[in-house]
Design a protein around this nucleic acid. Structure first.
Lengths: 218, 218
DNA sequence: CACAAATTAGGTATTTATACCTATTGAGGA
DNA sequence: TCCTCAATAGGTATAAATACCTAATTTGTG
């Protein structure tokens, strides 16, 4: 990789101040890298990105109250030249596909070493994509990238969301059918359609999805 | 606070390697502080604590598959002189009470600044307790004893907690049995025991419980 | 040692979930 | 008007979960 003629400028967005501060320091100690701004939420990240026009935004997608995918979409829309490296605690295919589709150039989980973060930053600024090993594994294990990446297919209908909510609350198909005055068969069909759209195959998986998407409260 | 006659020795337990590495470096740059060992899981933390006898253990309580409270109890039991500073992503009253009750001397959430971590470490090694502002607020807002009154998760055995984690991750009994090299029957029995103890009768319910109790991350 | 608890495993039965199939009705857009 | 999609419902079949039963082995503790 050739040496750039100026420092790589980074915008750091992570709500965990402890992490953000020491990560900022660690990155600033690296030659050729400069963290020019940092914030603890996605809204400010959008503002700061316009003001500082960083080469790359390291974006924690688990910030509370803010949808990481939506933040990434807005950042890319407002700053087409800026690259995004998504940082996540876990490698869920749904989020990986979502972030990639939103325009993110990389995806790292926080169990990766610091050296891999540096590699990812340099790779992405160099114009390539970077996915960590666990992310690549997760993608390989989830064959239906098209379905997950396509928001029009992944989006649930109102009725399906309602069914999902009841499923995640622990109701059986029969109980849901009685609650909604429809046939158990219909509930089963809805559940199957939800699972097909989300590429999730278990009740536990649906429940986790519902929690993540705030269909139900924890 | 008087200056100690030797460095404060720290054992660092956090499954997020990125965080652990840069936090280790950041702490080691502080005069009078030395991270003597670090690990990504609670089991190893118990082993390392015996070998290194650190002054203080900085323990991430959100490590997957491991119950933070149980880990703290074991650490305290095996190393009565060692202090524990619990690090968490959120300030859940149940966990704060649980960790304090288990013998933890401090509780910080990761949105705290690095300076507060240093303050907490020094305060705790000095023999006092340290709770961050958000933690104190959370405790003040929640009637204290009610949270302790129903430590449902504490009634689960280590094995049951492990089974619960796999269930909530969406694995079937057969898959869990293959993962743990035990019979599907045994997994079914564990699940039944968990449901009986928790008075929860569905997979979705177990998953929600696991999320609430942070057996698995959202 | 004696006792309690945890972990392991099997039997049998019923209920539920999951995966395929087809099909009707109504709403809304090209 | 034609076409797609959402919502509805049924059939059939297998896999999984759930609810009861018993019991051996290990582990730790008084």
């Amino acid at each position: 990789m050739m040496t750039p003629d100026r420092d790589i400028s980074i915008l750091l967005a992570d709500d965990h101040t402890l992490m953000r501060q020491i990560l900022k320091d660690a990155l600033n100690r690296e030659p050729g890298i400069r963290v020019t701004a940092d914030t603890d939420n996605g809204r400010k990240a959008v503002e700061l990105a316009e003001n500082y026009a960083p080469d790359i935004i390291i974006l924690d997608i688990n910030m509370p109250g803010i949808n990481g995918i939506e933040t990434a979409k807005r950042l890319i829309k407002d700053n087409p030249k800026t690259k995004i490296l998504a940082l996540s605690m876990h490698c869920e295919p749904y989020y990986i596909h979502g972030m990639i589709h939103a325009g993110s150039s990389g995806f790292l989980i926080k169990t990766c070493p610091f050296s891999e973060l540096l590699t990812a930053v340099k790779t992405i600024v160099g114009g390539d994509r970077y996915l960590c090993l666990e992310t690549r594994k997760a993608l390989a294990a989830s064959p239906s990238e098209k379905q997950d990446a396509d928001p029009s297919i992944a989006r649930l209908t109102d009725r399906e969301t309602e069914i999902l909510k009841h499923i995640a609350e622990g109701l059986t198909s029969l109980e849901i059918s009685k609650t909604l005055y429809i046939s158990k068969r219909t509930v089963d069909i809805h559940r199957a359609n939800i699972m097909r759209k989300l590429n999730i195959n278990t009740i536990a998986g649906l429940t986790l999805f519902a929690v993540r998407e705030k269909v139900i409260a924890v």
